[in-house]
Design a binder for these strands. Structure first.
Ligand code: SF4
Ligand code: SF4
Lengths: 134, 134
DNA sequence: TCTAAAAAGACAATTTTTATCTTTTTATTG
DNA sequence: CAATAAAAAGATAAAAATTGTCTTTTTAGA
């Protein structure tokens, strides 16, 4: 339970690698994939998601590749994880109360809410800089 | 991500209902299932798991059914969840470091460890009594 | 125009989840 | 003892999610 998927793990590896590169060095997807040991086609999908929300910037064509979208200390682990895994949802009723008619009186409901907050807090407190630094 | 499965949700509902019953009242599985709106055959599997580790006690035959294995304030939500979902594992390297060769230098690894601890702490701090009380 | 590289979309194998159904074991009761 | 009640165990299966791959398209540079 609560397990990060491969996709999430790959996503983190990839972007942490990027964050560890010299500031404005443009990296090939194929190079990143090889470096962090992830299937290139899979990582491509992941970086497309990153690109859409601006977590990375991409350049096409010759000399193209990827760079970080913002300074590495301005990107949190939470953003990275949520970009590919979606919101941190310990239980569906946390995000969709209507899902369960019992939520009116349910005492479990607020516990999941607390779990959500705790997890988010941990992940939000870590930046790519923290993860890529020496 | 981090989402409880139906099985986990059902498990909690079922055992919380049991905890809310008068002390030594033996409950039929079919009654519990109906009360908490869970497929009876599915709940049966769940309660079998509970029974194996003593979270509930079961009686077969006429007049049989289930009662809580211990006082409701001695059973934590963590136990219940882990009984059916397995350990709280935010990332597999947390439990099987050998899984990933990068764990020696990896800075992400300890973050998942912290997530694990936080989640466990929240769930461990809640008992069935807390969840079933008026 | 040719080539390099990412973006997009379609597809597929595998695994996990979410059950259901049947048979077996155990206990009670008349 | 026979009949019945109820949980335990086991087999099976549909649906969904995960984990990829492959092909085509778009964009940019040389
Ligand atoms: S029973 Fe409570 S915890 Fe479970 S889904 Fe409903 S509101 Fe959420
Ligand atoms: S790269 Fe780090 S976080 Fe990811 S599996 Fe390996 S040790 Fe764990």
């Amino acid at each position: 339970m609560m397990e990060l998927t491969r996709k999430g793990e790959y996503a983190i590896r990839g972007i942490v690698y990027l964050a560890a590169q010299p500031e404005d060095r443009v990296c090939l997807l194929s190079d990143i994939a090889a470096a962090v040991d992830v299937p290139p086609t899979f990582l491509a999908k992941i970086f497309q998601q990153f690109s859409k929300i601006g977590l990375v910037k991409s350049y096409r064509g010759t000399g193209g590749g990827f760079v970080l979208g913002r300074a590495s200390d301005k990107i949190t682990l939470l953003e990275v994880v949520e970009a590919v895994e979606g919101q941190i949802i310990p239980n569906r009723c946390v995000v969709t109360p209507s899902e369960c008619s019992r939520d009116v009186f349910c005492k479990v409901h607020p516990v999941w809410k607390r779990v959500q907050i705790q997890v988010r807090d941990v992940l939000e407190g870590v930046t790519l800089k923290d993860l890529s630094g020496a």
